[in-house]
């Protein structure tokens, strides 16, 4: 062995620099703390995560954050905030690369198509009937914020079918549904709660544990655990809990191939943990249907003007947002992605 040569015989440890590395997310959290939507209501799904492609929520509940300083941004938002982004920001205002979730390809307007690439979060561990997990961790919200009761039921049914309902009795299942009383729009439908409960126990099994958040969040071992989040991606598409579980060894259920998959080309992939990665794709729009603009509605512009005038000409204000989001939610529900192909 030759002699080890080094510049210094010591190393200084200064963790303060790591605070700077996390600064943009800390700043984002600070801004979001003025708003209940992302900071509280959509928590823990909306908690910040760090990654090589700069994951970020463009919408902080009151308005759009600016995309600047970094060469790329991964927008973790769902359909509603991203539609607002595409409506309110023009492509020439953004110099960075922008990635949105692959499932949301259909909300990109024509003028944005050259600027946008798509990401998917992929787990190394994929479970199905041939590869069963030891545990299943189910999460979501028991109101229509993340999924309507019918969608909620469909999602759990898919999970049960893919793993085999007969196999679930042998698998430990635990669930975390954060306590959110009203749904995002302030309504409280008692009947829906019954539908959600029924969907969980009927599709999975009766013996389901419901641990506290602290127990879930301090657990470091999710190996051999399947994470299933019932989330249609209206607000948060790239969820914190998904990253949290996958980075601790968890996996996902096998998904059925989609027709749109043939149009995507994998451009790059980066590891996010030992157990999961982010893949960046390009989309070939040839053969896909024309973008359907949710704002091309009669009197839409006039309505917006009335709201703006009434609120001191602010571009986005609370009431406007609420109506906007509610409207978009209905629009995209009526036009499911497959209808665009």
């Amino acid at each position: 062995m030759s002699e080890i040569s080094k510049k210094n015989d010591f190393e200084y440890i200064q963790w303060g620099y790591d605070l700077i590395q996390n600064a943009y997310l800390n700043k984002k959290e600070e801004l979001a703390s003025h708003d209940d939507l992302y900071k509280n209501y959509l928590a823990p799904f909306s908690f910040e995560v760090y990654g090589p492609t700069n994951p970020f929520f463009i919408y902080n509940g009151h308005g759009l954050m600016e995309l600047k300083d970094l060469p790329s941004w991964t927008l973790r938002d769902g359909i509603v905030p991203l539609s607002i982004f595409f409506k309110e920001v023009t492509p020439d205002q953004v110099t960075s690369k922008v990635f949105i979730h692959k499932d949301l390809w259909f909300i990109v307007p024509e003028n944005w198509r050259n600027k946008i690439q798509f990401y998917s979060i992929e787990a190394d561990n994929i479970y199905d009937k041939n590869n069963l997990p030891e545990k299943i961790f189910v999460s979501g919200i028991l109101n229509s914020t993340l999924a309507e009761p019918e969608d909620f039921n469909d999602s759990l049914k898919y999970l049960a079918d893919t793993l085999g309902k007969e196999n679930l009795e042998e698998i430990e299942i635990f669930a975390y549904f954060p306590d959110k009383r009203n749904d995002l729009w302030g309504s409280w439908d008692e009947e829906n709660v019954l539908k959600y409960s029924k969907a969980i126990f009927q599709n999975l099994k009766i013996d389901i544990k419901v641990p506290e958040w602290r127990m879930i969040h301090t657990e470091g071992d999710y190996k051999n655990c399947l994470y299933h989040e019932v989330n249609n991606g209206l607000f948060v598409k790239d969820s914190y809990l998904n990253h949290f579980v996958l980075s601790r060894g968890g996996g996902l259920v096998r998904t059925a191939p989609q027709l749109i998959d043939e149009h995507f080309t994998l451009v790059k992939e980066s590891r996010l943990s030992i157990y999961h990665k982010i893949c960046i794709h390009e989309l070939n729009y040839e053969g896909l249907s024309k973008y359907s603009d949710p704002f091309e509605l009669e009197h839409f512009a006039y309505f917006k003007k009335i709201i703006e005038a009434g609120q001191g000409n602010k571009k986005l204000n609370f009431h406007w947002e609420k109506w906007y989001a509610s409207y978009l939610k209905k629009f995209f529900k009526s036009k499911k992605p497959n209808s665009f192909i």
């Binding site: 605070l19 590395q21 996390n22 910040e48 760090y50 990654g51 994951p55 996010l272």
Partner: peptide, 8 residues
């Protein structure tokens, strides 16, 4: 005061 976000 040093906070890291998940994945850092």
């Amino acid at each position: 005061g040093v906070k890291n976000h998940d994945g850092f």
